[in-house]
Design a protein around this nucleic acid. Structure first.
Lengths: 171, 171
DNA sequence: ACTTAACCTAGCAAAATAGTCAACTTTTAT
DNA sequence: ATAAAAGTTGACTATTTTGCTAGGTTAAGT
């Protein structure tokens, strides 16, 4: 599937966090990066860097002028986590053996293939999680919390059995 | 669950790759870091750094002297990917709002909680995948490939290397 | 004794991360 | 028309992480 392994870094976390903030607040009108920066304590200029990539990846739309700001390019339910992370992360192949048949060392490529397979698993998993799902789950959780103050309900998007089964189908 | 978010970096990939190599080759006798370094094209000293952490996390056992090397501390089926990554990665809390009730900004913590929930999901997912599973999956795939290969042409590649034969006899 | 290999320590260069600063352009309200 | 709000761009800096080099010490096998 993917040519390069998935990376889960603070950069991706910033991007997902910002996109979540955007999904949450841009329901009615565009949200400025200044607002997101203030809410999420991320520097404005760093956000600008991230959103430049997100815009180029067609994940957000910016409108200029007073009353402007950013909105999601698609419905929150159509934006998945894997795409957000891919948008802000450099490809950075890290194949080492070129990925071609030029790799003579079978053993070396063995673990490489295993890791790439695992990486694809994680990517598929993240592709199955959307901003909409996260918000919806949180909304449900909030309602539950309001109804039962002490009930600490764990957010569970996918069932674990689903993950394992999808894992078993691959490789 | 976890106090800090999961990170999927090249460091973690190196660790998992090395552990996979170890799981694959240390069935009979200990494996030296020099061997792993050669096979996986990772520098010996970097491996030493990683294995120092893995050893402190009780994931591998080292034996000194000639004929020594590293072995898995537990069965490959009992070592999961999440623990390997956690062992080599710095905690680095990145909570920003302390995780306590001292965070006055509800909206800021909203996305923070959402990300932490997602992070826990990923961790659970990785906890469900063991080195043993990865090796087993690969073995099944290899056997299938070999059978397919044998069906088309008679095997003559045994002489090619002891790599293939030793590979097929494992697990 | 000698060798092998784990184990330890310090330092270092390159890269990635996170952020700053400044000078823009475009849109829109007045 | 003009000013304000907001996005756009590029260059620049500081810090951290990464991956590695070089040098040791310690334990165990021959």
């Amino acid at each position: 599937m993917g040519d390069y392994p998935v990376r889960l870094t603070t950069k991706g976390r910033y991007a997902v966090t910002a996109m979540l903030d955007l999904a949450f607040h841009s329901q009615i009108k565009p949200v400025t990066l200044t607002d997101i920066a203030a809410r999420q304590t991320i520097s404005l200029s760093y956000l600008e860097q991230l959103f430049a990539r997100l815009r180029r990846a067609n994940m957000v739309k910016g409108t200029r002028g007073p009353g402007g700001g950013y909105m999601l390019a698609n419905a929150a339910g159509d934006i998945n986590i894997a795409d957000i992370i891919a948008a802000v992360d450099e490809p950075l192949d890290a194949t080492k053996c070129g990925g071609e048949a030029n790799c003579q060392n079978e053993k070396a490529c063995l673990t490489h293939d295993l890791w790439m397979g695992l990486s694809d698993q994680i990517r598929d998993y993240l592709k199955g999680i959307t901003l909409g799902q996260l918000l919806e789950k949180h909304r449900v959780q909030e309602i539950a919390k309001r109804q039962d103050h002490d009930a600490h309900q764990v957010v569970e998007l996918h069932r674990h059995s689903e993950l394992v089964s999808s894992f078993n189908d691959l490789l």
